[in-house]
């Protein structure tokens, strides 16, 4: 069975969640990579092959892919023979897959943490209600679309990696009513984006606006910096860093909440993380209820000491 994976790429490089998605796809059938945008480099194609893609289907649609309906039309053409399409779940891909499902009649589950075949049907697992419930969903329709969250599958190369063949896909894009008047790129910071980071260290109102310690701790742990809504509303750090139900949902192996109370809106965006650690002055803050290791104390005392200890143990 052909399982198509919509490859997410940044500056021509395949992102890690795409490799996770290919790994997941191998458990369901034979992966085929779908690439929208300028043609992939030889390195990118080789990497996709290494993770099990037999083909890389390229639709050179350029910026037209910014229109969800056009991106969906291109994917529909490129995946005619695939009964399953996997994408990385983001606000943008959720719009694309909705359009795709309207075109193909597929059943859709987004924000999934995994998927498997049961009696020939795709079943997905995910958390709902601010990550307090586990749900398993069966996709009954003949075609299935699964949006998976980053960091939910461990990416690994295929046991018998092949060389992927590049296939150009000719697509006819529909007219769009919407006109994209301007696209102003957001300057990308160095390092892994928040949604993909294996470690996230977040600071909230308790930082008082000083992110130096949070950033230093994040760097030491190889992670990205997150924030609460209060912190981004204050303008202490840009909106792209906001973790939560209306910001970015993260599921890193380690989440460190510093000076964050743990409001339900925030918890919903991080509660499914592997290990949760918090540092908070208030022992009654709700964040303690979901923390594997909680410190009642000031982040200004605790973080520097933790950093020093980790550096010392690494040196020793």
């Amino acid at each position: 069975m052909s399982v198509a994976v919509l490859i997410d790429h940044r500056s021509g490089d395949v992102t890690r969640p795409s490799l996770e998605a290919l790994t997941l796809a191998r458990g369901l059938g034979s992966p085929v990579a779908v690439w929208l945008g300028d043609a992939p480099s030889a390195d990118a194609v080789a990497q996709l092959g290494e993770y099990g893609a037999a083909e890389v289907r390229v639709a050179e649609v350029g910026d037209e892919a910014r229109h969800p309906a056009k991106a969906a039309a291109a994917i529909a053409t490129a995946t005619e023979d695939s009964s399953v399409v996997i994408v990385i779940s983001t606000f943008v891909t959720k719009e694309i897959v909705t359009r795709l499902a309207v075109l193909t009649g597929a059943g859709v589950v987004v924000d999934a943490a995994g998927a498997e075949l049961v009696d020939g049907k795709v079943e997905t697992f995910q958390t709902v209600f601010a990550a307090t419930w586990n749900v398993r969903t069966r996709i009954d329709a003949e075609r299935a679309i699964v949006g998976v969250r980053p960091n939910t599958t461990q990416a690994s190369p295929a046991e018998a990696p092949g060389a992927a063949t590049v296939v150009a896909v000719a697509v006819e894009l529909p007219e769009a009513r919407e006109r994209i008047v301007s696209v102003e790129p957001v300057p990308q910071e160095d390092g892994v984006p928040l949604s993909e980071a294996p470690v996230v260290v977040s600071g909230g109102r308790g930082t008082g606006g000083d992110y130096t310690l949070v950033a230093e701790f994040a760097e030491l742990l190889g992670g990205a910096v997150g924030a609460s809504r209060d912190a981004t509303d204050e303008g202490w750090i840009s909106h792209e860093h906001m973790v939560g139900q209306t910001g970015t949902t993260v599921t890193p192996a380690l989440y460190v909440a510093c000076g964050i109370s743990g409001a339900v809106h925030h918890r919903g965006g991080m509660q499914a993380s592997g290990t949760i650690v918090c540092i908070n002055m208030d022992p009654d803050a709700p964040i303690f209820e979901i923390s594997d290791f909680g410190v009642v104390g000031s982040l200004f005392d605790v973080i520097p000491q933790a950093i020093e200890r980790i550096k010392a143990r690494r040196a020793g």
Binding site: V277, I279, P283, F288, S291, D292, F293, G294, V295, V296, G297, S298, D301, V302, I303, P304, Q305, A306, I307, E308, R309, I310, R313
Partner: peptide, 14 residues
């Protein structure tokens, strides 16, 4: 586990 900082919680966390 919840610990209250009495001077070494950072070390315990590490």
């Amino acid at each position: 586990v919840t610990v209250t900082d009495t001077g070494d919680a950072g070390t315990q966390l590490a």
